[in-house]
């Protein structure tokens, strides 16, 4: 039906996985650093320690980069979602304005919107508590006001606008 929930759950899975990874990394690093400090107190001048210091630096850098990339992922997901909201709102406005321009009655606007959402006559009739014949008649009037041949062309009317804009932008 809509891409938003799929996008959101995919984003959540991704950030959750990155977070768990970051958590495990931090646990490992803190325990390791604790061990290194213990070694250092016992024997400060060993070659062993130099290697351990190197590994420690690598682990700490790993946490910093991991945290940074997780932040970037979270911010990217938010930007995408906001862009989607804006686009959705903009499309809604375009549709509302077009419906007004076609001089659809309030009932016709409702039916037209549901038809755009992909509901069939039976669904629309059930949702509005009207007879299927009424809905069919309303759809016919809507198509004639919009000067389109049928449902496919009616839906394409708005998609075409969107595609045109996307190419221009």
């Amino acid at each position: 039906m809509s891409v938003t929930p799929a996008l959101r759950s995919a984003g959540r899975r991704q950030t959750a996985a990155l977070t768990v990874f970051l958590l495990v990394q931090t646990l490992g690093t803190v325990f390791f650093v604790g061990d290194v400090i213990g070694d250092l107190l016992e024997d400060p001048v060993s070659v062993h320690f130099i290697f351990e210091a190197f590994v420690t630096a690598a682990l700490v850098l790993g946490i910093v980069f991991g945290a940074y990339s997780l932040r970037r992922t979270i911010e990217l997901l938010r930007t995408q979602e906001e862009a989607l909201e804006v686009a959705r709102g903009a499309l809604g406005q375009v549709i509302d304005r077009q419906f007004l321009a076609w001089a659809l009655t309030p009932a016709e606007r409702d039916v037209a919107f549901l038809a755009l959402k992909g509901l069939d006559v039976a669904d629309i009739a059930k949702l509005r508590g009207a007879a299927q014949g009424t809905v069919r008649a309303q759809l016919t009037r809507i198509y004639s006001k919009a000067d389109v041949s049928g449902r496919a062309q009616f839906a394409a009317f708005f998609v075409e606008d969107l595609l045109g804009e996307a190419i221009a932008a």
């Binding site: 970051l22 958590l23 931090t26 646990l27 690093t29 803190v30 946490i63 910093v64 945290a67 932040r71």
Partner: peptide
Amino acid sequence: GWMAMSLLVLRLVWGVLGP
């Protein structure tokens, strides 16, 4: 205690690098 310390370290790092 060490786990809590690690979590605290992560949260403090996140306080600089997080959203």
